[in-house]
Amino acid sequence: MDVADLSPAQARERFRTGERVPTAGWCRSWTQANLIAVPSELRYELLLFAHRNPQACPVLDVGEPGVWSTELFSGDLRTDLPGYRLYRDGRAVADLDDVVAEWRADLVPFLIGCSFTFERALLAAGVPVRHLEAGTNVPMYVTSIPCESTGSLAGPLVVSMRPVPEELVATAVEVSGRYPSVHGAPVHTGDPAAIGVENLAAPDYGDPVEVRAGEVPLFWACGVTPQQAVLASGVPYAIGHLPGHMAIMDVRDDHYRVA
């Protein structure tokens, strides 16, 4: 079966039993989300960070301390994503297939919007999505743009990039702008150096994609931003998804379309 035709439950079962792959293009019309789980004493701090940086950190769902499912994700957050990253004292210390042993009773899971949600809408509008064409992960870059900080969380904005033909830039901006809960319109168009991205061929996360003649790089706020704040702020313990390896939720993309 084409992975685009899988239901969320079918995809989660495949991840639970060992499939490890970026999830762009999986489960057509079902919403994907970033995972970040932090100790309970940081949950309100993370909520405040998200509130102050809503384009990068649109919160779709939050679980209770210690739980591994939420209202919008009926699977097991410890096993049903295709990859995880463990953080200790502001360092990424391990990439894991599951986090059953690492999931603590005080962890609060947050599900953050993902730009994969509007990629089908881009395609339907005739906008190419290069990493889907190539079958690779989306490229993601740490920028020089600081997020608005809180008492204990700070860090730079992370962006994802998709090259778009110049004549379709306005279309891409309009289409993605209809999905504000999953990052919305691009935060930057054009010169990567203007946001501190020196080399498009060397993303900080994900895989590089070809930018062809006549194409403009478009940069969207990315839900890996909270993980970058965990690194920058020295958070003692956290669990995130492996960038590009998302939580596939039990809610449709159209639920987040506002126009």
Rank of each mutant, 00 (worst) to 15 (best):
A201C: 08
G155W: 01
G135T: 04
S69C: 11
F116E: 10
P186A: 04
P243F: 13
G206H: 02
S152H: 09
G196K: 07
S152C: 12
P146M: 02
A170V: 09
A134M: 15
G244V: 09
H183Q: 01
P128F: 04
S233L: 08
P139C: 10
T70A: 05
I145A: 07
E215I: 07
N53I: 03
G196E: 03
T117A: 13
P180T: 05
V138H: 03
L77Y: 01
L122A: 01
L46W: 06
T31N: 08
T136C: 14
E215K: 13
E174Y: 13
P8A: 07
L81A: 15
E119I: 15
D80T: 11
G184Y: 07
T31W: 05
T225E: 03
A92H: 05
P128G: 07
E148P: 05
T171G: 10
R162I: 10
E215N: 14
L60Y: 02
F116I: 15
A213I: 15
L157N: 04
A221P: 07
R85A: 14
A202W: 12
W220Q: 06
R28Y: 01
R52V: 07
P128E: 01
Q32A: 04
P236V: 09
L35H: 14
D2M: 03
N137G: 15
S176H: 06
R162K: 04
A105L: 09
M249S: 06
L168Q: 12
N34F: 00
C27D: 09
R91A: 11
V3D: 09
R257W: 07
A101M: 11
L153F: 07
T136Q: 09
S144V: 05
P192M: 14
V129N: 01
D61A: 13
G234M: 08
P139Y: 00
T225L: 00
E215V: 10
P156V: 12
L77Q: 12
N199R: 15
E41F: 12
L107T: 02
E198P: 02
D250N: 06
V59C: 12
G234L: 06
R91G: 10
E174Q: 12
Q32K: 02
Y84D: 04
A33R: 11
L81H: 11
E45S: 03
T171D: 10
F118V: 08
R212N: 13
V108T: 01
D80L: 04
